[in-house]
Design a protein around this nucleic acid. Structure first.
Lengths: 216, 216
DNA sequence: TGGCTGTTTTTGTGATCACAAGTCCTTATG
DNA sequence: CATAAGGACTTGTGATCACAAAAACAGCCA
C-alpha cells in the first residue's frame, strides 16, 4: 500500500496547520508590530483557500495575537505603554504562581535542562538573534511551568506571550547587550535550594525586567 | 427616507452578532456543561449560514468557552475538579489585582452602584434563579474592575468567567441557600474604608468561596 | 434477547463565488 | 504644486456546494 509523506497520517485540518504556524511566528517575534496581513495572502502562502485562512486569523484575533480594525483589516498589534505594563503585570502574577507550583516537582533533571536552555539563550544573545532569543527564552519558562501541572494557567501565560510577541521583537531589537539574563541564574539557584520566596522574586524580576527598556 | 429597525445602522457583522449572543448565554450559565452544539443548528437558530456560525464557534473555542473533540464535535466544556481549582486560582490572582487597582479610583457613586447591584443579587437568590444570579454577580465584579482601567486584565478575567459559565450553573443549581454572598459586603466595606489588604482578602474569599461546593 | 454489521443520516471541512465597502492611485483643477 | 474627485483594485463577509468521516439507526444472526 502506498503511503503519503507520513506514515500514520495524523490528518491535521488545514485551518489548524495555518493557525499553528502563524502563531509560532507571531509568538517568536517573527513579525514586527503593526504588520498588515490579508486572508488571501495567508491562504496563498500556506496553499489553502480563504476559508481555513480566515478561521486561523479569527482564532488568533480571539487570543489577542492579531488585531482587526473596524473595517476588518488584519494586523499584528501595536501595544501602548499602558498595555505593555498590564501584560507584564499579568505575566508576573501568573508565572510566579506557575513557578511556585512547579517548585515541589522540580527535580534535578529539570534543573539541568533549564541550564542547557540557558546556554542556548546566551548563544542567541551573542549572535544578536532576536527571534532565537525570544524562542529559547520562552522555552526556558515553559519547561519550568510544565512541571506545575496547570494547563489552564500555562495557556493563559502563553496567550500573554503571544500578545507581546511582535512588541518583544521590537524591544529586544533595539537592545544592544551581550550578557544573558541574569535572573535566570537566580531562578535556577532558588530551584536548587527549594527557596520559594526567592523563586517568586526571581521570576517576578525576570518577567518585569523588560519594562525598563520602555524608558528609552 | 425609510430606515431599518435601527436608525444609524451600526452594521454589525453576522458572525459578531452570533458570537456575542452565544457568549452571553454561555457566560451566564444558560447552557449546561457538556451541551452538544452544531454549526448548522447555530446558523439555523440565528438565521445565518454556516460560515458566520463557524467563525463564532471557532472564536468561542479559542477562548475556552466551547470545546471541540478530535473529530470536531462542539460542546460546552465539562470541567474536571482540577481545572476548576486552576480557574478559581486564576480568578483570585487577576481579580485581586484588578480590585487593588480600582481602589484608588473608587468614589462614592461607584460604591452605591455596587450596593444596588448587590440588592439585585439578593433578589436573584431569593427567586432561585441561577442565570440571574450569575449575571448580576458578574455585573458586580465587572462594575468594580472597570475602574481599574486595565482592559487586558479585565479581558483575561472575563475569559475565565466564560470558561466557568456552564459549570457555575451546575454548581449554583445544586446549591440551596437563601442568603446573598456575604463577602460582597466585606468588599464594599473595604472600599469605603480604603482598606487595601482587607479588599484583597475579601475579593479572594469571594472568588474562591464557590470551591467548597465541590465537596458535595 | 443481545451484539454485530450494514446502511443512512448527520456533521465538520474546504473551495468557490458574488457582493459591498474600503483603500489606493491616477488625474484634473484650482 | 497642492488638493480633491474619480475610478480601479483590494479585501473582508456571507452563502452555497461537494466531500469525507463520524455517529446514529436498522436489521440480521447467534
Amino acid at each position: 500500500m502506498l503511503l503519503t509523506t507520513r506514515a500514520l497520517d495524523t490528518k491535521i485540518p488545514a485551518h489548524d496547520r495555518v493557525y499553528r504556524r502563524l502563531r509560532t511566528r507571531i509568538m517568536h517575534g517573527d513579525l514586527p508590530p503593526g504588520q498588515a496581513l490579508t486572508i488571501r495572502g495567508i491562504g496563498n502562502e500556506y496553499e489553502v483557500s480563504m476559508t481555513p485562512a480566515r478561521e486561523a486569523v479569527r482564532r488568533l484575533a480571539a487570543e489577542g495575537a492579531l488585531t482587526m480594525s473596524a473595517s476588518g483589516r488584519i494586523s499584528t498589534p501595536e501595544l501602548s505603554n499602558e498595555r505593555i505594563e498590564e501584560l507584564a503585570a499579568l505575566r508576573a502574577l501568573i508565572e510566579v504562581e506557575l513557578a511556585s507550583r512547579a517548585l515541589p516537582r522540580a527535580h534535578l533533571a529539570l534543573i539541568e535542562r533549564l541550564q542547557v536552555t540557558n546556554g542556548a539563550i546566551a548563544e542567541a544573545v551573542a549572535h544578536r538573534d532576536a527571534v532565537s532569543y525570544i524562542r529559547t527564552n520562552l522555552e526556558f519558562h515553559r519547561t519550568l511551568y510544565l512541571r506545575a501541572q496547570a494547563p489552564a494557567m500555562l495557556a493563559m501565560a502563553e496567550t500573554v506571550w503571544l500578545q507581546m510577541g511582535p512588541t518583544m521583537r521590537a524591544l529586544y531589537g533595539r537592545l544592544r547587550r551581550t550578557e544573558p539574563p541574569q535572573f535566570h541564574r537566580l531562578i535556577i539557584a532558588a530551584l536548587r535550594a527549594g527557596d520559594e520566596p526567592g523563586l517568586r522574586l526571581a521570576v517576578r524580576s525576570d518577567v518585569t525586567q523588560g519594562l525598563r527598556m520602555l524608558a528609552s
